[in-house]
């Protein structure tokens, strides 16, 4: 009973989310392999081989694997899936894109976004925006799984000494083609990996005003997040969104500013260790989940907080 995990990467570095997916795999099986498909990605293969607990790294290299296009990646995973009872990936936009395609090609169900493992065929996953936790049992021979990264502590990225096996690349499907990417560049920590997150909502009012949120984030060495309302209003890019359909985060400290606390936003952050809410509406639902609530005008309170934090 062995497990295969899809390594996520940009051809130069292994994505931290992969370490959480490996942790979930190790909770199911002792024998965990990673598959690295990319283009000129030997640095990723080296990094994957060093991940604690990994047995073998399967490496497929071809120009058409450079951008993890589902049409090329899914058949490759299917081609090597024989002999694995579990095939896993982190529930990132890459994992969510590729894995259901793998499952359908194998004619099996996918178990999405697991947060717990009961046994080799039984898993826990949030449904209805995290208001209900379902325990589901799979009757399929192969279990295709995506892993909610906040549900499993990352394994160490050092200490492993996996063997590397080369896997033959399949032909380019010709169905899809990478055109380009506009990635948000930031010196701040990555949202899903940050210890502290400062998030702004509709109450922030404008793109310019988000500087207030960013000033506090920089003071705390935090990542910046946002509610759907703030993203829809164009204050910040889409990849800032925390919530049911955006990113799911669980930092040590989450500071929600000008965020009312819709069900969909709470779904993305309510597993944070400590939650702070700053909102002028004392009836806002966000106070119902906040450990510390401050009722007040964010334009006054947040700059005051930056100042009070000093150097």
């Amino acid at each position: 009973m062995s497990a295969l995990v899809l390594a996520e990467h940009d051809n130069s570095a292994l994505s931290p989310a992969t370490l959480n997916a490996v942790a979930a795999a190790l909770a199911i099986s002792q024998d965990v392999d990673l598959i690295v498909a990319g283009s000129e990605c030997s640095a990723v293969v080296t990094a994957a081989g060093a991940v604690a607990g990994v047995r073998t790294v399967l490496h497929a290299d071809a120009a058409h694997y450079a951008h993890a296009l589902a049409e090329n990646l899914a058949p490759l995973i299917v081609a090597v899936a024989d002999g694995y009872e579990h095939v896993l990936a982190a529930a990132t936009t890459t994992g969510k894109n590729v894995m259901p395609r793998v499952a359908a090609l194998l004619d099996v169900a996918q178990i999405s976004d697991i947060i717990g493992v009961e046994d080799h065929e039984t898993f826990m996953r949030p449904i209805y925006a995290g208001n209900v936790i379902a325990t589901v049992r799979s009757s399929d021979a192969t279990k295709v799984i995506t892993v909610r990264t906040t549900g499993f502590d990352a394994v160490a990225d050092t200490g492993g000494s996996a063997a590397v096996e080369t896997v033959e690349a399949l032909a380019d499907s010709g169905l899809s083609q990478f055109v380009g990417e506009e990635l948000t560049k930031s010196d701040r920590p990555e949202l899903t990996a940050a210890d502290i997150i400062v998030s702004g909502g509709r109450g922030v009012g404008s793109s310019e005003n988000f500087a207030i949120i960013e000033a506090l984030a920089d003071k705390l060495g935090a990542a910046v997040g946002a509610s759907r309302a703030a993203v829809d209003a164009g204050y910040v890019p889409n990849d800032y969104q925390v919530g049911q359909t955006g990113k799911v985060v669980a930092p040590g400290l989450y500071i929600a500013i000008g965020i009312s606390g819709a069900i969909q936003h709470l779904a993305g952050m309510k597993d944070s260790k400590v939650i702070v809410a700053i909102n002028k509406d004392e009836e806002a639902p966000i106070f119902g989940v906040a450990d510390y609530g401050l009722v007040g005008d964010l334009f006054k309170e947040v700059p005051a907080m930056v100042e009070a934090l000093g150097d």
């Binding site: 169900a109 039984t122 209900v132 379902a134 325990t135 939650i275 906040a290 450990d291 609530g293 401050l294």
Partner: peptide
């Protein structure tokens, strides 16, 4: 292909306290 074994509510999160001002918040 998947059998629902059971459903449960997630662990409830207790609402906490309201703080008076920024100083008290930072102190906490």
């Amino acid at each position: 292909r998947l059998t629902l074994v059971k459903v449960a509510e997630p662990p409830a999160r207790e609402g906490g306290v309201k703080v008076e001002d920024v100083q008290q918040l930072i102190d906490k």
